[in-house]
Design a protein around this nucleic acid. Sequence first.
RNA 1: GGAGGCGUGGCUGAGUGGUUUAAAGUACUUGUUUCGAAAACAAGAGUGUGGGAAACCGCACCGUGAGUUCAAAUCUCACCGCCUCCGCCA
Length: 436
Amino acid sequence: MLDIKFIRENKEIVQAGAVKKHVDIDIEKLIALDDERLVILKEVEQLRTEINRVSNDIGRDQDSALKVQLIEEMRIVKDEIKAKEEKLKEIIVEWQKIMLAIPNIPSVDTPEGPDESGNQVIRTWGEKTVFDFTPKEHFELGKDLGIIDTETAGEVAGSRFAYLKGDLVLLQFGIIQMCLEMLTNKETLKKIADDAGLTININSFIPVIPPVFIRPNAQLKMARLMKPEDHYMFPNDDLMLIGSAEHTLGSMHMDKIFEENELPVRYAGYSTAFRREAGTAGKDTNGILRQHQFDKLEMEVFSLPENSMQEQNFLVAIQEYVLKTLNLPYQVISVCTGDMGFPDSRQIDIETWMPGQNKYRETHSSDSTGGFQARRLNTRVRRSDGKIEHVHMNDATVVAIGRVLIGIIENYQQADGSIKIPEVLRKYMGGKEFIK
RNA sequence: GGAGGCGUGGCUGAGUGGUUUAAAGUACUUGUUUCGAAAACAAGAGUGUGGGAAACCGCACCGUGAGUUCAAAUCUCACCGCCUCCGCCA
């Protein structure tokens, strides 16, 4: 959510931002409603002042005849307030509807574009893996090795589910373990920041296993995956399944105030993510690229406003460090206005080279939301001079399990159909060199 | 799932319808004192919102939402959360 004062003073910027994001909003209507809101608010407050003043007199007064008369008068004022408040309520309902529908404004360095075709490659790293045979896709390798079983999962749970088995499971937990060690090691974090040319406060990440259920009310404040059909809903319990750990990490501090010296607060949340994938029927149906259920390690950072841009650069540097450590070729993408998330001011994605498909596929995302989510969540910081303002929030993938596994399977595949285990992960797999 | 209790500012905690502008303590900020600190003493200070250049003024906020009343932290109802006990359970 944006600040109504900011909207009033910068309506051209807000309108232009929405147009770039292809979101329809009616700012003129909002401002007209807001004018009306302020007028009635003032009237209600004036009437209330009168009631407060007279009621105090009534409590103090001993003259019972006068009392009866004043009470009678106040009864009329009360009815007047009631009528005005009802009107006010109607206006606020309409007002909020528009406020919630206004997207965050894209940063100046965000490329403009209609959809993902407008995304720009910022940089690439690593050479595309070279094979002296024709590389296969992950689902074929996975099936032959008995480590991915989508057929049984299809019968048991339906499409877009899978059984991951054997060494692939050990590989998953090895990756997670490696990443958690990295995120809780100040020296490693400092090295990553230094290499990226960032001078930032190195608070290590706090590992979290968050709830996978969330109240729709809290989810609305995160402003993420907003269409109801994107989520698994449990109306009997007023709950929904999260689409990312971000949903329950970001809402951890709603209605809370940080002290300036606590920030940045960084979390690394490990959870299963659930997505209905409505409207993607027929897309990426093979294997584990696009699943209803996948595990993910996600970063969520609360920072001072002036540091949030650096913070996003840091998160991207961490993502690149992970891929470099695994020696997976990738490209970094600046996501354009037509493709970026509703609450984002700047979105950076990373696409990892998938030789089986012969293309880069999205494996990481990094969202800078500025104060947009924090305003909805009412998450603030008390500065050292006592002033209170909204924090800035960043979230970013460390590893999305299905997709990073595909990256390893396809890039590390051997002519005989086995998969070489990246050296850094072998210590988590009993020293094993190959999955075969 | 059943029974009981509780929810007040950063924290502790008083307040059961009307000079309550939410007591007091603590933590916090500033000052006095000191070579410096501690201690002591003094003063200041909640959040949001509307108006104002500012000083300041108004309104709202005691888990959330409705209601009763001239007047609600206080009474009523619903919901949420926490605690204790019982039941069930990895």
